[in-house]
Design a binder for these strands. Structure first.
Lengths: 133, 133
DNA sequence: TATTGTTATACTCTATAACTATA
DNA sequence: TATAGTTATAGAGTATAACAATA
């Protein structure tokens, strides 16, 4: 089962990258954009927890996204050590296309699968995600 | 659903690395050892298809595994361009501990999950893995 | 000519530790 | 002194292109 999860993760990531075509985003970059998509600013640490990366890693991801004009950094009011990250208008457009591509990919891949199987998969994936690190 | 797959993949990989403790293997290295575990030699290309990596990437993975004495390379009889890769005795022991750790992890994580959910997950993960790249 | 594997190059992700500027 | 973020360093995965040996 765990091996099947790895295979599915790999295949869907690859398929998503192909569908996005010219957008050229790495999985971590998509993940970061997806987490910021609701419009709420996050600190670097919060984003790190959300995407499962260390602050030092998040810094690198944000450097690239900022260079491409997809996110902006600003000192957080109230605590000048913190940085608030949020999407730029271009970042919001990109996040939206990722979301659409994901939905389409999922719809396409699971077209012939019945609802009971999907419910079961939710349960199993939830249990696996909760496993103690 | 696809996001749940990514989260589960990430969590299980991390848990597996923790359980293996001192063994210190990257996911790709585990994957390569797992594929060779049946004792049948593979060419670099075959292994690349099995682990989802390009030959150039496989070369690097094998370099590290060979340096640590876990796999051996030999010219393939009949086609001197090809290389046959197989596990050394130490590699077989390592592959076995990976297998055991995987089984235990899975058993532990899915202890409270009923069989219908597991069957459903198999179906869904199979469908996702088949999605066109 | 085509294939097999390797090497070379460049970029990303990751972890760790040291550093800065704030608190 | 503790925390937030960055920088520095090193290792690993990835893709692409060029290459040598062999078919």
């Amino acid at each position: 089962m765990i091996l099947a999860v790895q295979r599915a993760a790999h295949a869907t990531l690859h398929a998503l990258a192909t569908r996005l075509g010219t957008v050229e985003l790495t999985p971590s970059e998509m993940n970061a954009l997806g987490n910021l998509a609701d419009g709420r600013p996050r600190t670097v640490s919060e984003l790190g927890v959300a995407v499962g990366a260390k602050p030092a890693t998040v810094t690198g991801i944000l450097d690239r996204l900022e260079r491409r004009g997809l996110v902006s950094r600003a000192v957080r009011p109230g605590d000048r050590r913190s940085v608030h990250v949020e999407l730029t208008p271009a970042g919001r457009r990109t996040a939206r296309s990722i979301h659409v591509a994901l939905e389409e990919l999922e719809k396409h891949a699971l077209a012939g699968v019945d609802q009971h199987a999907i419910d079961g998969a939710q349960t199993v994936l939830g249990a696996l995600a909760e496993v103690a690190p």
